[in-house]
Design a protein around this nucleic acid. Sequence first.
DNA 1: CGTTGTGAAATGATTCACAGCT
DNA 2: AGCTGTGAATCATTTCACAACG
Lengths: 219, 219
Amino acid sequence: MPIKPKIPRPTVKRLSLYLRQLESMTAHEQQTTSSKQLGEALGLTDAQVRKDLAYFGQFGHPGIGYKVGELIAQLRKILGTDRNWNTAVVGAGNIGRALMAYGRFKNKGFEFVAVFDNNPEVVGTVIETHTVRPMKDLATLIKDRHIKLGIVAVPEEAAQQVTDELIEAGVVGILNFAPIRLDVHDAVSVNSVDFSVSLEQLAFQVSLGMTGSLDEDEN
Amino acid sequence: MPIKPKIPRPTVKRLSLYLRQLESMTAHEQQTTSSKQLGEALGLTDAQVRKDLAYFGQFGHPGIGYKVGELIAQLRKILGTDRNWNTAVVGAGNIGRALMAYGRFKNKGFEFVAVFDNNPEVVGTVIETHTVRPMKDLATLIKDRHIKLGIVAVPEEAAQQVTDELIEAGVVGILNFAPIRLDVHDAVSVNSVDFSVSLEQLAFQVSLGMTGSLDEDEN
DNA sequence: CGTTGTGAAATGATTCACAGCT
DNA sequence: AGCTGTGAATCATTTCACAACG
């Protein structure tokens, strides 16, 4: 192992986008691509693409570009999605169901292997082939099924408590949909999706567009 | 109006967080706060908080801090959520329903005034007091109800088409849940929420935590 | 040729540190 | 004494530009 390269945070986000674009390219039988082409498809500069990829190794072929299949394999390895991540969904409301219904996660290395809810009317019902379990089964199921990722899709008031239980049971990564900052210790990773923030950002951009300026869109 | 201050993008995201934290403070009858306190609650430095706010004016009172009610009003004005944004949801699937069910948007300046879907079985049903309309009514309803924001919660294949229709009808901001980059002209703002990217980022962080290092979590 | 990988330069964002107000 | 607002310094990220390679 050479040194620690230090990866910029924005780079990580873009790796996912590269991977998705490349997968769409294989689907179209495309064998090879370039940083220019990849960048154009995603609204980035070619230099940005090359620099991002170069943090992880030398995947390109000068004069040729990148071999699509090869780069896909590399990116999966980098992102950790070459293995399978057993994942639990906590909260069988609309968000929980939306995620479980989105079939493409399976091919992306994420497998939902348990759903929990505390509502007795929901417990026992089946969502996408999975029976909703009561919260009291959480710890044992997380352990038995070697679940490493947890999705917190419960109301704000319950989010921290649920998080604590997940971590206690052995989960090492949390995707949080509740509008609060979750308190976790350093060994656990948290990533939050916050609809209010997203909408307010949008309102700001729009308001601004009517008067001043911010930098580009970039989606 | 003096000059163009140029707002850092990360600042905008944080403004939403400040606003939410302040709202929770008023709910607890708190009259006044400081950049230090605000920062600690959100995992930011006090200097960061002050700098963010100072881009928009001098809202603080030296020696005292910030008056909570006052700052809330200012932030709402800055974000554009002091007015009301009529919003349309396209796609009455789980994500669309999750958003409509999240009651707090109303108090945040976003009002969902129309839902559309192209599935005949769903059209005509009622979601949170709103009858689902067919796609063919989109243009007229957007115009009649002065809808300015659109939420794209449809499958990937339909997302660009839906976006085009929304913009054609007069929408100026789009919140996109489909996993593609939407093509829009400059006068329209787009903000995307991408579950796959969020999950893959999480997997990366976790994988890394097992070996190397990235910078802090920060949720 | 066209395209990568990469130092060096430029731009952007955060933190420091302190003068000045209450 | 306590806290803001802000220039200056630091740190992070992006862009430039070009040598090296197939």
